[in-house]
């Protein structure tokens, strides 16, 4: 019996963005698809979603003991940490210059340069470099990072509506990619892409972070916002066609489910299994609505998500 044609003919396509150049042994392209996630029957999925492992330049004091257990000593040294992350299957290293935060060390541009240099030398993978999330310090250390990594095509972030100009300028000056982060809202994401685009940075150098909540903590908002972004992009809205990155590890490991096993209901099950699944299931749910790059924390969830993506790409 004839079934009506359900293939969509989309007018738009997601922008492809490549991370890594110069001394990087590997480059990673994300985006480029012409359909919704893994619907191989109606379009091309040009690149598999990539996985970045988050590495901090400061031994985190608020991370779950499970993460400390998994990474061990390397957590005190971003270079070693990055090398181990590469070994454990990362596509990209997401280096967080957290120590620059005024309340967490207040390190400056010179420290940032040194850290970036060390990590570049310790891994062959492309880098994302995140600032500490405080306006002035972000500007200070991201400019330094962008200069230090000139020629390596790293991504720097986050450029947000209230603070994007310096970061974008640093990306422009040093030929880097910029991460545009907006609060879970299609129109705000669009506006930021337009503003950043207006500064003259080419579209193949913008990745958008529409912000996510973890499973159980608002993941459904991201699910729908991302789906709307993606449908608009495929529908031809050029201002929303940037590939999407999500800081899944940060969100998932902040939840009570992942962080602790103290006084939790017995029905929550085994702590380690729950925590890792919390990260992996948040990740896969976002992959299901268009995530192109996931920043994760635990080696086991990295392995799980990687294998899941392998399987999803197998239909291509």
């Amino acid at each position: 019996m004839a079934v009506p044609e359900v293939k969509e003919k989309y007018a738009g396509r997601i922008q492809e963005v490549t991370l890594g150049a110069g001394s990087r042994g590997k480059t990673v392209a994300i985006g480029g698809e012409s359909t919704l996630p893994f619907l191989h029957f109606e379009g091309t999925v040009a690149n598999r979603p990539a996985i970045a492992i988050e590495v901090s330049d400061r031994e985190p004091d608020d991370w779950s003991p499970l993460l400390k257990e998994a990474w061990g000593d390397v957590m005190g040294d971003p270079a070693k940490w990055a090398a181990k992350a590469e070994e454990l299957g990362a596509d990209v290293i997401a280096l967080s210059l957290d120590s620059a935060h005024p309340e967490r060390g207040n390190t400056g541009a010179d420290d940032a340069r040194k850290t970036v240099r060390k990590v570049l030398e310790a891994t062959t993978l492309p880098l994302i470099v995140y600032g500490p999330g405080q306006k002035d310090k972000d500007n200070e250390v991201l400019v330094a990072a962008a200069e230090e990594a000139k020629g390596e095509r790293i991504a720097i972030g986050n450029a947000e509506e209230k603070n994007y100009r310096t970061i974008v300028a640093a990306a422009l000056a040093n030929d880097q990619v910029v991460i545009a982060k907006s609060p879970m809202d299609v129109n705000l994401a669009k506006q930021l892409n337009v503003l950043i685009g207006d500064m003259g940075i080419p579209k193949d150098r913008i990745i958008m972070d529409p912000t996510t909540g973890a499973l159980g903590y608002g993941v459904e908002y991201s699910y729908s916002v991302m789906e709307r972004v993606r449908l608009a992009a495929l529908g031809g809205d050029a201002t929303l066609q940037q590939p999407m990155v999500l800081t899944v590890g940060y969100e998932a490991w902040r939840t009570k489910e992942a962080r602790t096993n103290d006084e939790v209901p017995q029905e929550w099950g085994d702590w380690a299994q729950r925590a890792i699944l919390w990260e992996a299931n948040t990740a896969i749910t976002l992959v299901n609505t268009g995530a192109n790059l996931l920043v994760l924390r635990h080696p086991q969830s990295v392995a799980l998500v990687r294998k899941a993506i392998d399987r999803l790409m197998a239909g291509a």
Binding site: G216, V219, E257, W268, G269, D270, L277, N281, T285
Partner: peptide, 15 residues
Amino acid sequence: DQAVVYSLLALRQNI
């Protein structure tokens, strides 16, 4: 596994 079931129920509730 309880952890599996819990995470799926949470997701189902969300979606």
